[in-house]
């Protein structure tokens, strides 16, 4: 399978980090950066990545289904809203933000809007405990999120479309 040039470059950069006999090390990064660049992980990509790092496709699948940020076979939306409800956020309003986002977006856990734009996930601790409640939209952190701020963030996503 042909990869977009930027991703191809990222592939060489990542594979170059590891000793040649251990290029399997690149597996998780390759999958995550591919997902970011392509929006989804396809069976073709699985085969391609297997070939690049010299493993069986089933070994890619083993890894793919293990890590919670890798979404396969169902991709998440262009904007992936991740709301933490783990203990620090639980104490400070995380679960309420979660309920609110579900209602506002009409989505549940790991559901994607019909247009593929927004998806929602209740996530485990994202490492923002002292600035809870926190959410991540794609890789962007938002701290001390209030219901109003959540609404604003979600409304912005709709406008970004």
């Amino acid at each position: 399978m042909t990869l977009p040039p930027e991703l191809e470059q990222k592939f060489s950069e990542i594979i170059g980090k590891y000793p040649p006999q251990h290029k399997r090390s690149a597996l998780v990064p390759l999958l995550l950066y591919s997902q970011d660049a392509l929006g989804k992980i396809t069976p073709e990509l699985v085969t391609e990545v297997a070939r690049r790092v010299g493993v069986f496709p089933v070994q890619v699948e083993e890894v793919l289904t293990y890590y919670s940020m890798l979404h396969f076979p169902k991709p998440m939306g262009k904007y992936h809203v991740q709301i933490c409800t783990n203990v620090s956020c639980q104490l400070t309003g995380g679960p309420e933000l979660w309920e609110r986002a579900c209602k506002k977006l009409g989505l549940g856990h790991k559901e994607v809007s019909a247009d593929g734009l927004i998806s929602l996930e209740e996530v485990e601790c994202i490492g923002a405990c002292s600035w809870a409640p926190a959410i991540q939209i794609n890789y962007d952190f938002h701290h001390f999120v209030t219901p109003e701020k959540l609404d604003e963030l979600l409304d912005n996503l709709r406008q970004l479309q």
């Binding site: 069986f56 089933v58 070994q59 699948e61 083993e62 793919l64 289904t65 293990y66």
Partner: peptide
């Protein structure tokens, strides 16, 4: 090498290649 382990935790299971 035809068998692998997919998913994790209580949902982990053996899978074919």
């Amino acid at each position: 090498n035809a068998l692998g382990i997919v998913q994790r935790g209580a949902y982990a299971e053996i899978a074919p290649n």
